[in-house]
Amino acid sequence: MTDPSGRLVSAAEPIVLSWSGGKDSALALARLLDDPRVEVVGLLTTVTAGYDRVSIHGVRRALLHAQADSIGVPVHEVTLQPESSNEAYDAALANALDRLRERHPEVRRLAFGDIFLEDVRQYREQRIATSGYGAFFPLWGEATDVLAREVISRGIEARLVCVDTDALPAAFAGRRYEESLLADLPDGTDPCGENGEFHTFVSAGPGFREPIPYEVGEVVMRGERFAFCDLVPAGAALAG
Rank of each mutant, 00 (worst) to 15 (best):
D187G: 13
L17G: 02
F116A: 04
A236G: 01
S84Q: 00
D24T: 01
D35M: 07
V41K: 04
E118S: 01
E194H: 02
L93F: 04
F116C: 02
V47K: 12
L147P: 06
R222D: 12
L100T: 04
P169K: 10
D166Y: 09
T189D: 05
V161S: 00
Y51E: 11
L32M: 11
V216W: 05
F116W: 14
E224T: 12
P213Q: 04
L93Y: 11
D3C: 06
R159W: 10
L238H: 14
F201H: 12
V38Y: 05
S70L: 04
E87C: 02
F112K: 01
W140F: 02
L117H: 01
F208H: 04
S55I: 00
A49D: 15
A171Y: 09
E224C: 00
E39L: 05
L44I: 07
I156C: 01
I212H: 04
A92P: 04
V161L: 06
S180T: 15
I115A: 15
A91T: 08
R60Q: 12
G58R: 10
F208L: 02
I71M: 13
L33I: 04
T130V: 12
L147Q: 08
L29V: 11
G174K: 06
G155W: 13
D35E: 12
A183P: 03
L97F: 13
L64Y: 01
E125W: 09
G193T: 00
A204M: 03
R175P: 08
V75C: 11
Y89E: 09
V78W: 13
L43N: 10
R108L: 03
G113E: 04
E218G: 07
A167S: 13
V120I: 09
R53W: 08
V78F: 07
G240F: 03
G155V: 03
P4K: 07
Q122T: 08
V107S: 09
I115Y: 06
E77W: 14
A227Q: 14
D98T: 14
L64R: 01
A96F: 07
I152N: 10
V40E: 03
I128D: 14
R159Y: 05
A143Q: 13
G72D: 03
V151G: 03
